[in-house]
Design a binder for these strands. Structure first.
Lengths: 193, 193
DNA sequence: CTAGGGTGTTACCGGTCTGTAACTTCCAGC
DNA sequence: GCTGGAAGTTACAGACCGGTAACACCCTAG
């Protein structure tokens, strides 16, 4: 007899997936390992056989979510193969959809807010992954023929980051509701330069 | 004999000030009430005589920091009395200075990230205070003769919010370093419309 | 001098946290 | 069918959490 959906996968995978979800929803410090293992249908000992500490689990979760997020680049590429400018617009569209679908923002940014210890292992990973994302966006802008590609990419980054954190403070009806309009007119003004 | 600087103020004030500082530096969930009272040179009982719970202390801290932040509006007004456009530029300048001076971002946004319970008393306060700040910026843009004042204000808000959270992820040398340039060219393009 | 309120001290409550030890159970591969 | 390793179970350690009770103290207003 096959149990529920996630029940058939291996404990390590269930733990990782459940932890991602719970960290995302309730924050890292708002979730204990007991709650994670229980929700994952396993137990604490099994968690500590696969991850040497909660901190390592956190790092692994961040890597996993970043890997998931990086798939949107493939989607954008697949949607408009070769047409970099169309891909940039698609990126804006996709970002806006993700904004609407979820109001808890970016896991990495949220983790950076929560984990204040400067030597926390997650901080290296966060910086690393965020820089990789930035480089992808810069490349996209450059390949789309934008003159000041770095500046546009950085501005779009800040807008999106701001939208994600603003949603958590004032909700989806606040400034973040105008994200697409802002991003599009920004791209237009950079193209006109 | 007069003791140290803060030692002569009343316990309640010291607790409030110390809590603000520690919440800001280490996050709300990263600081216990014991640590606060010890750093404030008092004890837990005294804290609970003045605040009925840690949650109430959090709310009071947020109100206090918002009150502090609202003083920059007075400074901006005092610097360029009557000249609303100059005040807008001064606001950008001031925001940038605060960015450079501190890398832990906005206490209210950080609190919203940490306090995920939808019915947490702090969430009302955060929304309330953030909306008040937004209205001030909208008014400044409008009075400075900007056509789409709301849109400019919201865009500037997201840029600043994004810069503050980005600093915590990738540091001060990341996209947030370009905040002034972004904000200024944004204002310029809105003025040209 | 005295009364009383604000403050400090100590100890404690029940709960939760990360992490571990020792043991049992299950199940797949041989 | 047996065996070996992965997974589950229970209990626990030690620290910390928010919050409270009881009591001693001090300092100031009358």
């Amino acid at each position: 007899m096959t149990d529920g959906v996630a029940e058939r996968s291996r404990p390590r995978d269930r733990i990782l997936e459940t932890a991602q979800d719970m960290f995302h929803k309730h924050g890292i410090k708002g979730v204990g390992v007991d709650a994670i293992t229980e929700a994952a249908g396993t137990n604490k000992m099994t968690l500590y056989r696969h991850f040497e500490s909660k901190d390592e689990l956190i790092v692994e979760c961040l890597r996993a979510t970043a890997a998931k997020a990086s798939r949107i680049w493939d989607e954008v590429e697949a949607k408009h193969p070769g047409d970099k400018l169309a891909q940039l617009h698609a990126w804006v569209q996709k970002a806006s959809e993700l904004l609407s679908a979820d109001s808890r923002g970016c896991d990495m940014a949220n983790a950076a807010v929560e984990l204040t210890e400067t030597d926390h292992p997650a901080r290296r990973v966060i910086k690393e992954l965020k820089e990789a994302q930035r480089e992808k966006l810069v490349a996209l802008c450059r390949d789309a023929g934008i003159g000041q590609a770095e500046l546009l990419a950085d501005t779009l980054s800040l807008l999106l980051e701001g939208a994600r954190v603003s949603m958590q403070s004032v909700g989806a009806e606040g400034p973040s509701a105008q994200f697409v309009r802002m991003a599009e007119s920004l791209i237009a003004s950079f193209r006109a330069r």
